[in-house]
């Protein structure tokens, strides 16, 4: 099991048949974006239809896990028991993804040192044997 940043009682992902495959890739520590096989448009969260060409065919494109902080907030109210506060929720612009961003957390750094434009990389947190959640930490 990986290093832990958040308690078990963090809210779990809630998924439907469209988003569940993304979490199955995550469980294998594969960070992916959805790619339309017709026009190559990439997106998150996964969608049943491509918003650009309206194709329903897609696959998963693995990304490097590098990116930068697009925006963030330091949250001072707990969402889980025994949680360290504040914690950072951030939007990460994913490098090599065709312009896709994702919501995540920035960990491994003092919350007050997080800033927009900060270079980050994915670090997987195994919440259980079935659930891995991608967090991000500063590069280097």
């Amino acid at each position: 099991m990986s290093e832990r940043f958040f308690p078990d009682s963090m809210p779990p992902p809630m998924a439907d048949a469209t988003t569940l495959p993304w979490w199955k890739e995550a469980a294998k520590h594969r960070l992916v974006v959805q790619r339309c096989t017709s026009c190559q448009h990439t997106c998150l969260p996964p969608s049943p239809v491509c918003s650009e060409c309206r194709s329903t065919e897609s696959d998963w494109q693995e990304v490097s896990g590098r990116g930068e902080v697009y925006t963030f907030t330091r949250v001072h109210r707990p969402v889980a028991g025994n949680q360290e506060l504040p914690f950072v929720i951030a939007v990460i612009a994913l490098k090599g993804s065709g312009g896709v961003r994702m919501m995540s957390n920035v960990v491994g750094v003092k919350p007050e040192d997080v800033e927009i434009g900060m270079a980050v990389e994915v670090i997987w947190e195994d919440m259980s044997e079935e659930l891995a959640v991608p967090r991000f930490r500063p590069v280097g």
Partner: peptide, 14 residues
């Protein structure tokens, strides 16, 4: 819930 549920594990509830 599927929409919010995709970001809930990061603590995005508020």
């Amino acid at each position: 819930i599927a929409s919010i549920g995709f970001v809930m594990p990061y603590g995005m509830l508020m």
